[in-house]
Amino acid sequence: MQSVINTVKGTALGVAGYLTPVLKESKFHETGVLTPEEFVAAGDHLVHHCPTWQWARGEEAKIRPYLPSDKQFLITRNVPCYRRCKQIEYCEDKEKVIEDENDEDGGWVDTHHYDSTGSPTVEEKVCEMTLEAADAGDSGGEEKGESGAGDGDDDDDDEEGEAEDMEQFQASGLLDEVDPSTELRPRRESKPAGAGARSGAGAGGRAEGEGDDIVRTRTYDLHITYDKYYQTPRLWLIGYDEERRLLSVEQMYEDVSQDHAKKTVTMEAHPHLSGPTMASVHPCRHAEVMKKIIETVTESGGAMAVHAYLIVFLKFVQSVIPTIEYDFTQNFAMN
């Protein structure tokens, strides 16, 4: 039912966007919206500071006249997504209070203490750190002892006879002997497909058996378009599994915060491309959020320039898709 409602809304907004006049006068600081020219300026700034993003043209029949023909939307490809959103969700059953006598507050809370599918427990980490420190101490002592012994032998080496004649050494044939540590060995033949190299792991999971340490990584292509109706940027996503096969709708929703799946994030047709529908973060509140950020920066004595819009936009959209690691942009300070 929700998908039907989203489809009707999408169609209605498409018609409304077509009828909405193009914003000509800047209202960035007053309402948090952008003109097409400001969107292009912000896009140029993003591409300059983060070259993984590039401008794209799209299909000729879908070019928007209010944007430059070669700067219709922004795109970044093959963005990794290592985990599902469920793996980072907070759960009271997995937390534990870690007591610490040296801590004035009495300890701290490990939120994923009993998560057997995640990273090592605190005890395991402490044990590993202790063992590593001990090994480092032992090896350091050995190296120190060896180096000390070596220092004492330097004078003895100097007092031994003259250096060996290299021509005689070469004539002895010792150079022709093969050092077993550097001997080249033929490569093992790889197992044919289906011979048990991988087993039982779907996209985004872990391989079982021999490949247990291999993480199945999904990838996403992300697009940023200009929404004429809301006068803000809009983020689009399309995902692929490890074999570069398209993810299903339900699989993509696994990588979206459950507070936003099928509500803020919906499946819609891309405005510049034909093909499968893509997940889109609905832009209805983008201007409101941006306005609050501008006000916060202003109150703290700063000033936010319009060209930084997409840098900030990518920061607050991260809460919707927290496991898709696309944000390699510069840091942004609120004060």
Rank of each mutant, 00 (worst) to 15 (best):
S3K: 10
S3D: 09
I5R: 09
V8N: 08
V15N: 00
A16H: 03
Y18R: 14
T20A: 11
S26K: 05
F28A: 01
E30C: 06
E37K: 12
F39P: 02
F39M: 06
A41C: 01
A42E: 03
V47W: 05
C50Y: 00
P51Y: 04
Q54I: 10
W55T: 03
G58V: 00
L67Q: 03
P68E: 06
S69G: 12
K71E: 02
K71V: 01
R77F: 12
R77D: 14
R83E: 07
E92S: 09
D93P: 01
K96C: 06
I98R: 03
I98E: 11
E99W: 12
D100E: 15
E104Y: 13
G106A: 11
T111W: 14
Y114K: 05
D115W: 01
G118K: 07
P120N: 03
V122I: 15
K125Y: 00
V126Q: 12
C127I: 01
E128P: 00
T130V: 14
D135A: 07
A136F: 03
A136T: 09
D138A: 09
D138Y: 09
G140K: 04
G140D: 04
E143M: 11
E143L: 11
K144H: 15
G145N: 06
A149T: 11
A149V: 11
G150A: 12
D155Q: 11
D156L: 07
D156N: 04
G161V: 06
A163M: 12
E164L: 10
D165T: 09
A171F: 05
E177C: 05
P180N: 08
S181N: 11
R185M: 04
R188C: 01
E189F: 10
K191T: 14
P192V: 12
P192E: 13
G194W: 05
G202L: 10
R206F: 09
A207T: 05
E208R: 15
E208A: 15
G209R: 14
E210T: 15
R216F: 14
T217E: 01
H223W: 05
H223G: 00
K228E: 07
G239Q: 04
R245S: 07
S248E: 14
V249T: 13
Q251A: 13
Y253H: 10
S257I: 00
H260G: 01
K263A: 07
T264W: 05
E268H: 03
A269G: 04
M278N: 04
S280L: 05
V281M: 04
C284V: 13
R285M: 06
M290K: 02
K291G: 03
T296C: 08
T298H: 12
T298A: 12
S300A: 08
G301Y: 09
G301T: 08
G302R: 04
A303K: 09
M304Q: 04
A308M: 14
A308E: 15
V312C: 10
V312R: 07
F316T: 03
I321V: 11
F328D: 10
T329K: 01
Q330Y: 06
Q330D: 10
M334I: 15
N335L: 07
